[in-house]
């Protein structure tokens, strides 16, 4: 009897899940990856074909749909370097140079496979429309198209774990479907506060053969910030939020 009940519940859940349309799946992916406003620490590791590594630690804060800011905590050569995104506007502040300069989403602040857009990422559902949805027993496969031309990758193909509604792999492509890089989401971890998400994103790119970048996540916390934190004038002070 219990077994039959369990099968019935599974079928109802499956039916409910498949009833989700692409946009709803994408919004669920966003909310499962992070709350709308948060702070978090990330470690970026660039690995060269000969095994050489270079590591960066960043502190990032985000508010709502279009505000993200971050500051590098290490290494010493990059410490204090901060980035700000306000909608489609992006700036970089380098302590030695002193004044924020506008940057583009395609540039890389630190070199390597990750670019500014990856480090200052907004919710996927804010930047992309779902233009295709395929389903298998275990996965959704979403075809995403950028809402504006200012987004770094025009097309994304996202593999989503059907049970956890969590991405497992994302291919980032140009408008002409040329693959720029692939993100692999790994090591599901409980961050507390109800957030269970991948703690590691690995990236490789056919443009950087043999190179790999790894982004590791820690101390993801729900936190609200005043709007004034996400301004050009505040950029030199982002580290004081920690």
């Amino acid at each position: 009897m219990l077994k039959m009940l369990s099968i019935l519940i599974s079928l109802v859940c499956a039916a409910g899940a498949s009833a989700l349309d692409g946009a709803e799946i994408l919004e669920k992916v966003d909310r499962n990856l992070a709350p709308p406003s948060y702070e978090l620490y990330r470690k970026l590791i660039n690995i060269e074909p000969n095994g050489a590594k270079k590591e960066y630690v960043l502190y990032t804060v985000k508010k709502g749909k279009d505000r993200v800011a971050g500051v590098f905590l290490s290494p010493a050569s990059d410490k204090g370097r901060s980035t700000l995104r306000l909608g489609e506007n992006m700036w970089l502040y380098i302590p030695n140079v002193g004044k924020p300069v506008r940057i583009t989403s395609l540039q890389s602040v630190v070199g390597g496979v990750f670019n500014n857009s990856d480090l200052l990422q907004l919710d996927y559902s804010d930047e992309y429309d779902v233009v295709g949805l395929e389903e298998s027993d275990t996965e959704y496969i979403l075809d995403l198209k950028a809402k504006t031309r200012s987004v770094a990758y025009d097309r994304l193909k996202m593999w989503v774990d059907r049970e956890k509604i969590m991405p497992t792999r994302i291919e980032c492509k140009t408008e002409a479907e040329m693959l720029i890089k692939t993100l692999y989401f790994k090591e599901i971890q409980d961050f507390g506060g109800g957030f269970v998400r991948p703690a590691v994103i690995e990236t490789d790119s056919p443009l950087y053969k043999g190179y790999k970048s790894i982004l590791m996540f820690a101390k993801l916390k729900v936190r609200d910030f005043p709007d004034e934190v996400f301004t050009l004038t505040y950029m030199p002070n982002i580290e004081s939020l920690r």
Binding site: Y41, K43, G51, A52, K53, K54, V57, A218
Partner: peptide, 20 residues
Amino acid sequence: TTPASGAADGYAFDPSETEK
């Protein structure tokens, strides 16, 4: 030259790296 940090035979994010 291979940088001094060595080969990528594993990676970790030590909480001490985020302490203020």
